[in-house]
Amino acid sequence: MNLTGGIVLFASIWFLTLFVVLPFGQRSQADAGSIVAGTHAGAPSDLAWRRKLVITTLVTTAIWGVIAFVILGDYITRDDISQLDHLIR
């Protein structure tokens, strides 16, 4: 894995993790009891962006570290992946 591949892998994992982390701890405006005029009652009342971004980055760093360790340690190589279709046949 080169530098560009590592950055692309990190960015991909980061966005996937962000979409998983966003709904946790979410309170709607109806739950909070203060519905802003013109918005749906199910709209988020207060989204703690900074906390969610930090959590996303920490989780992504751990996942990326494991994947980079497996790739750079040659535990799984391209030859191993190209031979996966033989398991099905």
Rank of each mutant, 00 (worst) to 15 (best):
A68Y: 14
N2S: 13
L16E: 07
A11L: 15
D46N: 05
A41S: 01
G6A: 13
D79Y: 10
G73R: 02
S12K: 00
G5K: 05
I81N: 02
D85M: 12
Q26W: 06
A32I: 06
T39L: 11
I7W: 10
I81G: 09
L47S: 07
V66G: 08
D46L: 01
F69D: 09
G25Q: 06
A11E: 09
G73S: 10
T39P: 00
Y75H: 12
A11I: 12
P44N: 04
Q83F: 10
D31C: 00
L58K: 04
L53P: 05
W14V: 00
I63M: 14
L58Y: 01
T56W: 02
Q26M: 15
S28Y: 07
F69M: 13
G5W: 04
I63F: 11
F15R: 02
T4A: 08
I71F: 14
W14P: 00
T4C: 04
A68M: 14
D31S: 09
V66D: 00
D74K: 12
I35Q: 11
S45F: 15
V59Q: 02
A30L: 15
T57G: 08
I13D: 08
G5H: 00
V59C: 12
W49M: 08
A37Y: 10
L16M: 10
G5L: 00
I71W: 10
T56I: 09
F15Q: 05
A11G: 13
